[in-house]
Design a protein around this nucleic acid. Structure first.
Lengths: 201, 201
DNA sequence: ACCTGAACACCGTTCAAGT
DNA sequence: ACCTGAACACCGTTCAAGT
């Protein structure tokens, strides 16, 4: 069963979902700049303006794409946390998962953080999903604080420090600033993880 | 003496320079998305295609804008280093200058790091200017290592760690991820500076 | 309710022609 | 050498009209 409209069918079925998936696919393939509403419509066998029944404009579609990203990122972080053998390793594993997420989906990551979205505009769902991903980090740090493995500073501020560090590594990596080696980002993270930890104890 | 073409004059004078300045101005005012070649030409009283005598395409203009950014960033870092009263404070001051640069010129900063430029394309001058800014950090760390204030790890890797941390703070700040408070970025840096330092000693 | 087609006001870029 | 004007192949978005 394809996401493409069956010819002659009047309604598409789930155009909203199909548009998000199509956007994700072309973003992965060609970057954000390659995404056009006309192209997305054509790929789904739908008129160029059908999209406006489900999204206010292109930014709203991008916001939906970004939301998917934050949900997937949170899932990666949660999985990494569960996979850690010891409590002390949880945060290190989460950081690695974070950097890996960005390197595996650089264009998607850029939609989430590249300034395409105007966060002043009322997108409460997007802010909530981004907040939930951040909260995964805060929760892990609170656990470490309870076990006396991390100092008792404000957990949210500690989380922001860790977030900034891994976000910086991820951004420099997908921007090519660390050189052409595709593993440069993870290599830098491996070197940086103990340094980040040093800032927490 | 305006940068705008005097009417009737056949040549502009220094169109290349004027185009970069015009681009910087509109980017500061409206963001990168507000920059159009047609608009820039019109603002300078020049045809829409005059630009192609000085730049291969829009990306080449953006690359020139990014170069200016890296040169200005290096100047800020050097000034911060000189302004530090003690050797031990140099790096902290440089980090603050870095975050301040991004917060004061968010759109310009995004041209430098936002993935608009394809670093695989041959822009050796851009890579050189970005490298020079990074080298300012490496030099400061080498000095600290000589004074035994920083551990004797590979200086470039240490520099990348510091760079990623301040870059992450800067990016989150200008992306609005730290909340609406415009001072959130510098506040996070003040909290993070000693944590970053902990990773170096 | 959902979709279409034509239209509007934009883009970046090319190219023959002008000075 | 440097610039222009018209043209080309695109955009996002609006809107009256169709089912």
């Amino acid at each position: 069963m394809s996401t493409r409209k069956r010819k002659g069918r009047y309604h598409h079925g789930n155009l909203r979902r199909a548009l998000i998936d199509e956007a994700l696919k072309t973003i992965r393939k060609t970057g954000v700049s390659g995404l056009t509403l006309r192209g997305a419509g054509a790929a789904l066998g739908v008129s160029r303006t059908a999209l406006y029944r489900h999204f206010a404009d292109k930014d709203a579609l991008l916001a939906a794409v970004a939301r998917e990203g934050f949900i997937a990122l949170k899932a990666s972080l949660d999985a990494a946390r569960r996979s850690a053998l010891e409590l002390a390793d949880q945060l290190t594993e989460m950081g690695a998962a974070y950097v890996r997420f960005a390197i595996e989906s650089p264009s998607h990551y850029r939609v989430m953080f590249g300034g395409f979205l105007d966060r002043c505009k009322d997108e409460p769902d997007l802010i909530a999903d981004a907040g939930a991903a951040f909260q995964a980090l805060v929760d892990a740090i609170l656990d470490l604080q309870r076990a006396r493995l991390v100092r008792q500073d404000d957990a949210r501020q500690l989380s922001r420090f860790v977030w900034a560090a891994v976000h910086g590594i991820a951004m420099l990596a997908i921007d090519g600033q660390l050189g052409p080696d595709p593993d440069a980002g993870l290599a830098l993270y491996r070197d940086s993880a103990p340094r980040i930890r040093a800032g927490l104890v």
